[in-house]
Design a protein around this nucleic acid. Structure first.
Lengths: 146, 146
DNA sequence: AAGTTTTTTATCGCAGGCGATTATTTCATT
DNA sequence: AATGAAATAATCGCCTGCGATAAAAAACTT
């Protein structure tokens, strides 16, 4: 092996990529029960915090492009989780709001983060490690999202 | 806000998910030059380390399903990066090998990890933070991939 | 006011990523 | 040898995720 730096485990990219998919997989059974996908869950979290955002607002918060968000929101509208309507003040903007169904999911979703945290603490990882991990990742995001 | 734990920044999932996409985006210009995608780059890294693996071997190393890998490998075969052939000894298995084109890309790829590391060190993050981050993520992967 | 630029959302096409299922081969058991 | 189980890869369908582009509205410039 001539190029040591090209090994999977010696790069940051692969651990982040793999961990992301594994963590999402852990969410699956919980999200299945709510009949939503992981990105839909992210959209709901954003709207639970602030109901009534534009497509751009949501995209910015999730660091996604609007061409990912738009079809996602359309599917969520079809499932009656949200409504989409053009702003009267600025016809370019589309306002996204929770329906009562979307709002009501928050209560059931509230247990998910705790369940996941509990699950991760079954490893040798301490709560402190997880907090630091989160902080470092947020540093990376802060830096790269400029 | 009644459910503090449902905020994006208070969960591990979102930072990992967002960081993964942002880091992949940083790879883009380098990978564009080699005319490969990020998952293709991962497959190549695995094969550069051990040429001649089965579909399953590759899937296991990348923690991906074979139904993701199979079409990916087909595209790589079309680009003449790899060859795929049924094993004579066990007709169930398909052996994946680098072509000379695929092999030759290693030299050009060797600079990518360094460039990325350099880029990340432009942030307030220290090399030590990145190493620890990687280690923690590998702990998470180790635990969740069982 | 007219023309230009910017903002905002949507459309299109393509490559993952994965759950469910299938087809084939090999292994294990009787 | 015959049968059932396990392993391996592939197929299908759906939902992201994103680059490139377009369409419409608003903001800006002259």
């Amino acid at each position: 092996m001539e190029y040591e730096q090209l090994k999977l485990e010696n790069q940051l990219c692969f651990p982040v990529y793999a961990a992301s998919r594994l963590i999402t997989r852990e969410y699956q059974p919980f999200l299945d029960r709510l009949e939503i996908t992981y990105p839909q869950y992210l959209v709901l979290m954003v709207l639970w915090e602030t109901n009534g955002l534009t497509v751009n607002d949501i995209a910015r918060k999730l660091l996604l492009n609007t061409n990912t968000i738009t079809p996602l929101l359309k599917r969520m509208e079809q499932q009656a989780l949200i409504t989409r309507e053009r702003s009267k003040k600025d016809e370019r903007k589309v306002l996204v709001k929770l329906t009562s169904k979307g709002r009501d999911l928050q209560e059931q979703a509230a247990q998910i983060p705790e369940a996941l945290e509990k699950r991760l603490l079954d490893s040798q990882l301490e709560i402190d490690d997880l907090v630091k991990l989160k902080e470092r990742l947020n540093d990376v995001i802060e830096f790269l999202s400029k």
